[in-house]
């Protein structure tokens, strides 16, 4: 491979090479909308008084893993943060940090993946930036996306509204993303196929129950720290707790087997295409029914309940009839999974 086929410092230098890079790699894919004339900032039409705004950076290693890559992840992650906040993503920003020497073909693959995922999510790329750093100063390619979205009518999500008796739902199997990335990074081969990341937009799951939004108290996508982290975040400092039931938590066989093998508690492992919701008991069955009717929610389940005691804690009723605390994960259990 010659130097021309790789990222060079000049690609971020503001000169001719940068202009060519933007033209060939960025505008060719994203030049349809506000990026057509490559403005310094984009002016966007907006309806309604509120925007919902979020940002996230993506440093997953390896960049490609079963079920996705850093490009699709950078779209799904940000779109999903908006979705579980009760908003439909409209526009994303896309910032790339590239390491000198990275094959341009790989940059192309990632950008194509961004484009495909963005189209599938119905969001446009409104603005962006590219920086190149010297060899060894970043590990290949990092992405930052920020997203703005419109609130979906009816969602007023807040932990404050949760009451004992409310149900805890999850839209599918847990832990698939984190373990798929780990298996790819550590080159762990698993007989019969390893875990596959669940990286996907969850906006469909959120919209399909929008007419019940008033009875949905709170939603999260259980990314870093997994189900355990989001549930703990929900209960901390509250006068109630959550009890979940081990047998009801959906788990893909390959993911469960690998977690077992590695001694990792799957409750601590990230998902990238799931919703965890707390809702009023009356609507729980209906939400699970509608989720299950969809391809992205086929394994949705009601996994537990909000309880009066123990307050401020998450407890797991185990398969063998025991009970134990579900604690926050600690330390660098699985670094660089998103």
């Amino acid at each position: 491979m010659s130097a021309e086929d790789r990222v060079q410092l000049a690609h971020g230098g503001g000169g001719r090479m940068m202009a060519e890079f933007i033209e060939r790699h960025i505008r060719a894919r994203f030049g349809e909308g506000p990026l057509r004339d490559l403005p310094d900032a984009s002016r966007l039409a907006w309806t309604g008084p509120e925007v919902v705004f979020t940002t996230d950076s993506y440093v997953v290693q390896p960049r490609r893993f079963p079920g996705g890559d850093i490009g699709s992840l950078a779209v799904h992650g940000t779109v999903n943060d908006l979705a579980v906040s009760g908003a439909r993503a409209r526009w994303l920003s896309l910032s790339l940090i590239l390491e000198e020497g990275l094959p341009l073909a790989e940059v192309d693959e990632v950008l194509s993946s961004v484009a495909v995922a963005a189209r599938a999510c119905g969001v446009g790329i409104a603005t962006g930036d590219t920086k190149v750093v010297g060899r060894g100063q970043c590990d290949g390619l990092f992405i930052n996306t920020a997203g703005i979205g419109e609130p979906i009518a009816g969602y007023a999500l807040s932990c404050e509204t949760i009451r004992p008796g409310d149900r805890v739902l999850v839209s599918g199997t847990i832990g698939d993303h984190g373990l798929a990335v780990l298996a790819a990074r550590e080159r762990i081969s698993v007989a019969g196929g390893g875990p596959v990341s669940d990286s996907a937009p969850v906006i469909g799951l959120v919209e399909t129950v929008a007419d019940l939004a008033g009875a949905v108290r709170w939603m999260r996508d259980p990314t870093r720290g997994g189900l355990a982290a989001v549930l703990n975040e929900c209960v901390t400092g509250r006068p109630w707790g959550i009890e979940i039931v081990e047998q009801r938590i959906p788990l893909a066989p390959a993911t469960g087997a690998l977690a077992e093998l590695l001694g990792v508690d799957v409750l601590h492992v990230a998902c990238e295409g799931r919703v965890v919701a707390v809702c009023a008991a009356e609507v729980a069955e209906e939400i699970v029914r509608r989720w299950r009717a969809r391809a992205d929610g086929r394994q949705a389940a009601d996994i537990g309940v909000v309880v009066e005691r123990p307050a401020g804690a998450v407890v797991l009723a185990t398969r063998v009839g025991g009970r134990r605390l579900v604690d926050l994960p600690r330390g660098e259990l699985l670094p660089r999974i998103c």
Partner: peptide
Amino acid sequence: FKYERAEAAAPG
């Protein structure tokens, strides 16, 4: 610490 702190041992 992880699994058996007092609050988890109490019946829910």
